[in-house]
Structure formats: C-alpha cells, structure tokens
Write a protein that binds this DNA or RNA. Structure first.
Length: 451
DNA sequence: GCATGATCATGC
DNA sequence: GCATGATCATGC
C-alpha cells in the first residue's frame, strides 16, 4: 500500500479508465485467472496487478488517502437491456460494534461513501481472461437514494439492537441489504443482545439497485419516473409509510369506482397495477418506477372472498427441470427471487354485492423461518426430479408427486403453463408440463392477517 | 370448499 | 413465442 501513486480521486479514476478494453488475462500478472477457481478473482487481479496493492479485508477503503473503495462488478446484456449479474457485496457486518454507531460513522459509510466501480460484461461460457473492463466511474450515492439507504441501515441495526440479528433477511430492506457471506451457510457470528448465533452477513447493494446504477449512472440511460417527488417527505416518513399514506384515501373503493375516477378503460389483468400507479400519481405501470425497480418491489394482487378465505395461491416464475437440478439452494433462482424481494400486496375484498373493493396494501418480505420452509419444498422438488418424477394419467389430468400444498405450511409446486402440453424436458428425457413454486393460499391468508 | 391440475389474457 | 400475472375447472 505504501508508495502507491493513487492518492487522489483523479489519479485513481485515470488509472482505472486506462484499463478499459484490455483483456483481463493481459492485466493479470500473477496468473490468477488461469486457475479459474477463485470467485472474486477479477477484483483481486485489478487490485494487485493494475493498482499494485495488496488486497485488504480491512474496514478502511481500498484507497484510504482518497477515500475510494474499488468495486469490480459484472453485468449481463439481456433482451430487455443491461442488468446487474449479482448484488454488490461490501464489508462484513460486525454485529458487536456496528450497532453503537450512526450511519455516518458506520463501517459501511467509511468503506463505501465513494466507490470506483469498474464493470465488465459477463458472457456465458467465455473464459474470464477474455473479459474486458468496459466502464470505470467514481460513484457516490444520489441524495434521494441515500435517504432510503440510511433508513435501510437503521432497519438492519434495529434488528441487531433487538437481539434479532439471526432473523435478518435481505428482504427487510430496500436498496442496502444484509446478505449472507461466508464459506458455508453455517458461518455464524456472535451478536450483542442475544446468545443465538447469527449468520455472517455483509452489506450489499441489491442486484435490483445495481441494475439501476449500471443503467443510469454508468451507461447513461434515461431515468424512469420517481414515485417520491419530494425527498424531504421521504426523510420524514420512510418509504413504506409514505406509500400507505398516499393510498389510504382510496381504501374502500371498488375497481369500477377507481377506473372511472382515473378514467382508466382497460380489461388488462394488470389493471390493479395501473390503478395503483394512478393513485400514486404515476402515468405508466407502477413496476416501471425507479423506487419499485431499485428496491425489487414485487406487487401482487390478493383477493379476499366474502368468507375471508383467499381465492388463489400465489405463483412465481416457472422453472426448468434441467436447470433446477444443477442449482444449490443458496444461489438458486427461487431464493434469489424471494429473499431479497419486498412484496407489495394490493388487497381487494369481496363485498356482499360480489364486487371487489380496495381494502388496503401491505408491504411484506419473507421471514427467515418461512424461507427455511421454502427451502424444504425446493429441496424435495429437486430430489424428486433427480429421482424421476412419477407421472400418472387420471382422466384428463396428469398427476405427479411434486410437493403438494398439504405437505408444507408455506409453499407447493403446481403447473404454470399455456396448457398441459406446454412442457419442459425432464432429466430422463420425458416431458412434463411447466411447473412453478406457489405460496399456499392459506399461507397468504396468514401473511395479510391484521394484528 | 378445498386441492390440484389446467388454462387464459396481455405485453413485449 | 413466451414470460408473467391471474384465474378457471374438476373431483374428492
């Protein structure tokens, strides 16, 4: 570290930009990329071979004089544009000391106030040595994001202070999350106000938020619409309360009343998303707003029937049998989808006349113990597919032995396809109707139950 | 009335 | 053509 010429932001950025376009194998002086195993190797290569300092696991930033932290992060080019390949992982949270601090004195802020973000495109099947750094920017958080990030930090710390560090999950927060980090899922640390060991976690920027940073600040794409027009209001209330307050005036109105109120004339199944957007003063679809995309907020409509039961279970994206059997739970598509997500339930209740009235909304993320139930269902699903699914034709249906809603409190597996002949291949060569994971309707009922 | 399999409607 | 959100239909 001593003697590094990179002591100003300008010098660091200039050096970083000189790396653009050079294949990483030409930068890599120590042959790290050749052995291929090391997951964090691209970041390490740039640290040691390009900036010539020893990688440090310390709480101070990588370039202490300039207060800059180096982050090398992959992105994907997809049909729908540029997307972060993964969350951006920062420093490990020291539960024993961090809770005493304030956001501005926290380890997170010390380390990540200013980051040098170097991005490369990850291409499937291409050796890492062929990748090149495409962009290098100095990034500091925009003020409106920082308000949410500070609220996220407070939320994480409030769980630590309540002796609930073992119950932290990524979905608790919106942009800044505490993701698990360690060689195994069993890596645990002490927490200050409970004897229960807590999983080791690190500060991370959710991949949804990284996608925004990449598009807007690194690739210069146009901004999407904000829900929060005035960040000072946000500072007072917190995001979730802000949204609830905006919507309260519309509680009790039927879909028909809301449609006529906002002049919305559509039979779209996404009607509720359109209505929600109008209630929040947004022109398009709520899912296209900054805050929803940044925070990975997944809106879901729930209909409560007259008798109080939930009409339907809740579906998630379909999975491919051949892909899911390759996965480990910890980085499975299902866990990556559910755990960091903040769900926004838009709850309608059936009235005596049969019409559905907008009852309320509820923000929710999956609690740690329920995620464990999902894990059980996922593992049994994978095992069943590996063992060979039992398929049995009964009348016009094909019965299977994947996990049923009666087997688990939280989730089950069911078809999700255009029709029964819309299939994916099984490992043994047979075809099976596309399936997905669902939350049991009884579980959904539990979630939205009012205290 | 619920559990499970099947399917619809829209948007890209 | 397919992913996604949502709902229908049948049998027990």
């Amino acid at each position: 570290m001593e003697g590094t010429p990179y002591v100003t932001k300008e010098a660091i950025l200039k050096r970083a930009q000189e790396a653009i376009g050079i294949p990483l194998r030409d930068i890599d002086a120590t042959g790290r990329l050749a052995n291929g195993k090391d997951k964090g190797s691209i970041g390490t290569v740039l640290e040691e071979s390009w900036f010539c300092y020893e990688p440090n696991g310390e709480a101070r930033a990588d370039f202490p004089e300039a207060g800059v932290e180096l982050k090398v992060t992959p992105y994907l080019r997809t049909a729908s544009g540029i997307r972060a390949k993964e969350r951006l992982v920062c420093n490990i949270i020291n539960y024993m000391t961090e809770y005493e601090k304030t956001f501005k004195t926290s380890d997170f802020w010390h380390k990540c106030e200013t980051m040098l973000i170097m991005s490369y495109e990850h291409k499937q099947g291409v050796p890492k040595g062929d990748f090149t750094i495409d962009k290098a920017v100095l990034f500091s958080f925009p003020l409106e994001d920082l308000i949410i990030i500070e609220q996220d930090w407070e939320k994480i710390m409030s769980k630590v202070r309540a002796g609930q560090a073992h119950l932290i999950t990524e979905g608790d927060t919106l942009y800044l999350a505490a993701c698990t980090k360690g060689a195994t899922a069993a890596s645990v640390r002490k927490q200050p106000f409970s004897d229960i060991p807590a999983k080791q976690r690190a500060y991370s920027l959710k991949s949804s938020y990284m996608t925004r940073i990449l598009n807007q600040y690194i690739f210069g794409k146009d901004e999407d619409e904000h829900i929060i027009k005035d960040w000072r209001v946000l500072q007072k209330n917190g995001f979730e309360d802000y949204i609830v307050d905006q919507l309260k005036p519309y509680y009790g109105m039927t879909q028909a009343e809301l449609k006529s109120r906002f002049g919305v004339d559509t039979t779209a199944k996404s009607l509720n998303y359109i209505l929600l957007a109008r209630m929040l003063g947004i022109n398009g679809d709520i899912r296209n707003t900054q805050e929803f995309q940044n925070a990975n907020i997944i809106p879901k409509t729930i209909r409560i029937q007259k008798n109080g039961s939930i009409k339907e279970s809740m579906s998630f994206p379909t999975f491919k049998f051949m892909e899911i059997i390759q996965e480990e739970w910890e980085d499975s598509a299902l866990r990556e989808y559910i755990e960091p997500a903040k769900f926004l339930f838009i709850i309608f209740k059936e009235r005596e006349d049969g019409q559905y009235a907008f009852e309320r909304i509820k923000f929710w993320n999956i609690p740690a113990e329920d995620l464990e139930e999902v894990k059980c269902v996922w593992e049994r699903t994978v095992q069943t597919i590996k063992d060979g699914v039992r398929l049995e034709r009964v009348n016009n249906e094909v019965r299977n032995n994947l996990p049923k809603s009666t087997e688990n409190r939280v989730a089950h597996v069911r078809p999700h396809a255009r029709n029964a002949s819309d299939t994916y291949p099984l490992p043994d060569g047979r075809e099976m109707t596309k399936q997905c994971f669902w939350f049991n309707s009884s579980y959904v009922k539990e979630i939205i139950k009012e205290l």
